[in-house]
């Protein structure tokens, strides 16, 4: 299990150098996006000005965000108090299209995704990065700043939060070569279950 440091924006060669099972630490800017954002973009909605998915990473996350007093410059200020991954498979109908259209290089979430996304990762050079589900505080600590928020009308958890992160830990579970740790574990666990039940 190799450990790799990644900094956004990601280039294709870096992403194609990753293998399912690698541990990564991500630094730079990432964008949250979950059900409402994916459906909005899939249905032809515009990507808000100021959001650049090219070489970027979308994070399947609905954070708990508390708004603080505005800064001296009048800008809104936020603190993320919890920010773990949400279940990714809900975005399976949309993810491949977004990877193709916007040039996303990474998707962070939990639970893995389906064949369509795996094929898009291979075709366009992207990876699925599995965060530790439920580790909302560890990930909140990796967020050093909230740069902006878009599509707040979807509700706070469903908005696009633009987050600065440092050393955000994840595991590559779907790589750009068609490799999937989920498929390996699922097949191996089925073999083991059949063996355990063989006598019964």
């Amino acid at each position: 299990m190799a450990q790799v440091k990644l900094t956004t924006p990601l280039d294709e060669a870096t992403v194609r150098g990753l293998t399912a099972g690698d541990e990564v630490l991500i630094s730079g800017t990432i964008y949250t996006g979950r059900d409402a954002v994916h459906k909005h973009l899939h249905d032809g909605g515009a990507l808000p000005a100021g959001v650049d998915f090219s070489g970027g990473i979308v994070y399947h996350c609905g954070p708990v965000v508390v708004e603080r007093e505005p800064g001296a410059d009048g800008r809104r200020r936020f603190t993320v108090t919890a920010a773990g991954p949400t279940t990714s498979i809900r975005e399976e109908p949309y993810q491949a299209g977004l990877i193709a259209r916007y040039g996303l290089r990474g998707v962070i979430g939990k639970g893995g995704m389906g064949l369509k996304t795996l094929q898009a990762c291979r075709e366009h050079g992207a990876v699925y990065l599995h965060a530790i589900g439920g580790a909302a505080q560890v990930y909140a600590d990796c967020i050093t700043g909230v740069e902006d928020v878009h599509l707040e009308e979807f509700g706070s958890p469903e908005a696009i939060w633009v987050l600065r992160v440092v050393d955000f830990p994840a595991i590559v579970t779907m790589d750009a070569h068609g490799g999937s740790l989920h498929e390996v574990v699922q097949a191996d666990s089925l073999d083991r279950l059949q063996a355990a039940l063989a006598g019964s």
Partner: peptide
């Protein structure tokens, strides 16, 4: 005293 997981 922060949420263990953001999905409360």
């Amino acid at each position: 005293s922060a949420p263990i997981c953001q999905d409360t």
